[in-house]
Amino acid sequence: MIRRRATRQIHVGPVPIGGDAPIAVQSMCNTQTSDVEATLAQIGGLAAAGCEIVRLAVPDMAAARVLSAIRAGSPLPLIADIHFDSRLAVAALENGAEAIRINPGNLGGPDKLKRVVDAARAHHAPIRVGVNSGSIAKDILARYGYPTPERPEALIESALDHVRQIEGLGFSELKISIKSPDVLTTIASYRLLSSRTDYPLHIGVTEAGGLIAGTVKSSVALGHLLMAGIGDTFRVSLTRDPVEEVRVAYELLRALRIRERGPELISCPTCGRTRINLFDLAERVAAKLQTMRAPLKVAVMGCVVNGPGEAREADIGIAGGLGVGIIFKKGRLWKKLPEAELLPALLAELDHLEAEYHHNRQEK
């Protein structure tokens, strides 16, 4: 059983972070923030996939000023991502950002940091102190060296130095992130940081890569940390559609039995008996399951011979053959259909099961 480390709790909008709150799943839009329509569309997709907090880049004043319009239409709380310009942080908060992510070391000095902290206090918005391995102050690098798995102290000292500066301004609604693109450095850094502070931690591997490399790196690093009880919110950073980040995040939480959201997909790796386009079929079913909440096990199997037996525990599944396939429930044949009708019939039954699930919850 995983035992979470004890942390203080903050709120990003209505979402609690730290303490006894569930570990929150976060992502970041890759739209131009100033394009309100495109940004809201992407936020809607993220929310449907289960994302709970979304971060938006604020590179200029145009992006800061449209945050009020985005917040009005967003189902998720907004974190404004700020670099270098304290005026953008203040403007983002004035226009509805419910939290900000800053690296205090690149804002231009104590006076500008104070301006940002005062604005965060006035708008009841927490601050995420974010430090990456490529943005550590030169004096700290000179003292500790570039962060490695054996010597991660530079990341920790950089973050805690910024935290002390903000605490000195009378503000403590904080969470901390210290990211590296290196898996082992990420693990070592967060383990050391978690032993030295009780602030909630946002964990992640920065610049992790595309779907394959990014998923592997994030799963290794975040899986290790989450099993150690470290992490109050996290993002799986991928060079992909951010909805994919949320999918990977929930599969990681499910694998560790920390949180489950919606159905679980079981699918076979294919073999010489496969006579249908299983890859496409599994992807289309997975996209459907991402929008569902019913706690089902759904199987997509490559052949009629072994499908129901190997996926006997599935609530519902399909197994394809040459031009024909079956839909089965709990290992038993339910329907035999032409191949072209398999997916539509499965999707229709999933809609039925989802509606039944919500109806039963309302009855209770």
Rank of each mutant, 00 (worst) to 15 (best):
M1I: 08
R3G: 02
A6G: 02
T7S: 13
G13S: 08
A21S: 13
P22Y: 09
P22V: 02
S27Q: 09
E37H: 12
E37G: 03
E52Q: 15
V54E: 12
V54S: 03
A57D: 09
V58E: 05
P59G: 05
A63F: 06
A63D: 04
A80F: 04
D81V: 08
H83M: 04
D85Y: 02
R87H: 12
A92R: 11
L93I: 01
E94Q: 15
I100E: 14
N103C: 09
N103R: 07
N103G: 01
L107A: 05
G108F: 09
K112A: 11
H124Y: 09
H124Q: 14
I127N: 07
V129G: 00
G130W: 03
A137G: 12
D139V: 12
L141E: 12
R143I: 00
Y146V: 03
T148W: 07
P149E: 11
E153C: 02
A154C: 06
D161C: 06
D161F: 11
R164V: 04
I166N: 00
E167Y: 03
S177V: 01
K179W: 05
L184H: 10
S194A: 15
S195Y: 05
H202G: 04
I203D: 05
V205D: 11
T206Q: 12
L211A: 11
T215M: 05
V216A: 15
S218Q: 10
G223Q: 10
H224R: 05
L226K: 06
V236R: 09
S237D: 08
E244N: 01
E245H: 04
R247N: 01
V248D: 04
E251M: 09
E251G: 13
E251Q: 15
L253V: 06
R254K: 14
E260L: 06
R261A: 02
P263D: 13
T270W: 14
T270C: 07
G272P: 00
T274A: 15
R275K: 15
E283P: 00
A287H: 14
Q290L: 14
V298P: 01
V298C: 04
A299S: 11
P308A: 04
R312Q: 13
G317L: 10
G323H: 00
I327N: 05
F328D: 08
K330P: 01
A340P: 01
A340L: 10
P344G: 04
L347P: 01
L347I: 14
E349W: 13
D351P: 00
N360R: 14
N360I: 04
N360H: 13
Q362F: 08
K364R: 13
